[in-house]
Simulated scan of single mutants.
Amino acid sequence: MRVTEKVAVVTGGASGIGRALAHRFAAEGAAGVVVADLDKAGAEAVAREIGDAALPFACDVVDPDHADALMDIAESAFGPVDIFCANAGVAVGEGLGETDDWDLALRVNLRAHVNAAERLLPSWLERKTGYFLATASAAGLVTQIGSAPYAVTKHAAVAFAEWLSITYGDRGLGVSCLCPMGVNTPLLHGSGRSGDVVKASGRVLEPEEVAEIVIAGLETETFLILPHPEVLDFYRHKTSDYERWLAGMRRLQARVAAG
């Protein structure tokens, strides 16, 4: 799908990858971009940077009523939503995590994607067009040393995107799943030891680099969008010899624990 003349909604749009996507969609000639974020001031700032093609909206993506309101405002301002970027995410918890960590991670990293799909699918299936871009993580393919809530919910986000593509891919729905490693965002720098492991494991990209790769992935309607190409090699190693991969991850964990 080409972004030109399309209406796009970007959650988590106030910073990081979301901000870069909103800017890039506008630069590609999108008919309108809704910048959605819990951070109202941040969303407003990004919309001002973009100009008339953007509209800010303060919302909590885990609230189904907010999801409905988000789509309503996008449709009333610009027309039917063509591209939905489920980009909002949280990196919470260390180790097994606490109950509150699991609740928040499940609600933001997975349930918010489901809420959006529930709202958008009837219209997209009727129109036989629509695109769902899920921001997951390399952790959703090859796990993570550190936070169980983050690793598990990002796996779930990948699985939900797979399910959408399998179930509706022959009915006009496009689906891509964005799975980067380290990206220079507040999420990375605020994720404690888990973030330190990611930063040490490969090149940290700028959000604008990721947005460039997303545009190319959308145009070719590629399911797995991998800003760090080495993630595909890691994934192939994992699936070709699971026992060896698990042993290697345990060794990596021991090296991390040793400092």
Rank of each mutant, 00 (worst) to 15 (best):
P149M: 07
V10M: 01
D52Q: 13
F84G: 00
P80V: 02
R24N: 12
V158Y: 00
A31D: 08
T99G: 11
A258W: 02
L246F: 08
I145W: 08
F57P: 05
L252H: 12
A45N: 09
C85H: 05
R244W: 04
V256E: 02
A67Y: 04
R193H: 12
V197A: 03
F25I: 10
G32C: 06
K199N: 13
A91S: 13
E118I: 15
K128V: 13
A74P: 07
P180D: 05
E209N: 05
D82P: 04
V34I: 07
V35E: 00
I213R: 09
A58Y: 04
G97H: 07
I213W: 00
T167G: 08
L232S: 06
K238T: 03
A31P: 04
G174R: 15
W245S: 11
H23Y: 03
A22V: 01
A117F: 05
F132Q: 05
R2E: 14
P227K: 01
I145C: 06
G29S: 10
A200C: 06
S191N: 06
V175H: 03
S123V: 14
A54F: 13
D72E: 13
T135K: 02
H155L: 06
N184T: 11
Y150H: 09
N87Q: 03
M1A: 10
T153V: 11
A8E: 06
R244F: 08
L55T: 14
A54Q: 04
D170S: 12
A117R: 02
V152N: 02
P64I: 07
E243I: 15
S15C: 10
V7Q: 02
R107K: 15
A138D: 11
E209Y: 06
A77L: 01
A26H: 07
S201Q: 12
R48I: 11
V210T: 13
L110D: 04
H113A: 13
G259V: 00
H189E: 04
A86N: 12
S165E: 09
A91M: 03
G192H: 04
D52T: 15
F57D: 02
L125N: 09
I225K: 01
T222M: 06
D63I: 02
L133M: 08
R250C: 09
A43G: 09
G32N: 03
M181V: 10
T99P: 04
D241V: 12
E98P: 09
T220D: 11
G248Y: 13
L218G: 06
P80T: 06
L141R: 08
P186M: 09
P180F: 01
A36V: 15
V3N: 03
I213D: 04
E206R: 08
H113S: 06
G190Y: 10
R127Y: 06
D170P: 01
E28H: 09
I213H: 00
A69R: 13
F78E: 01
W163V: 11
R255D: 10
V183I: 13
G174I: 10
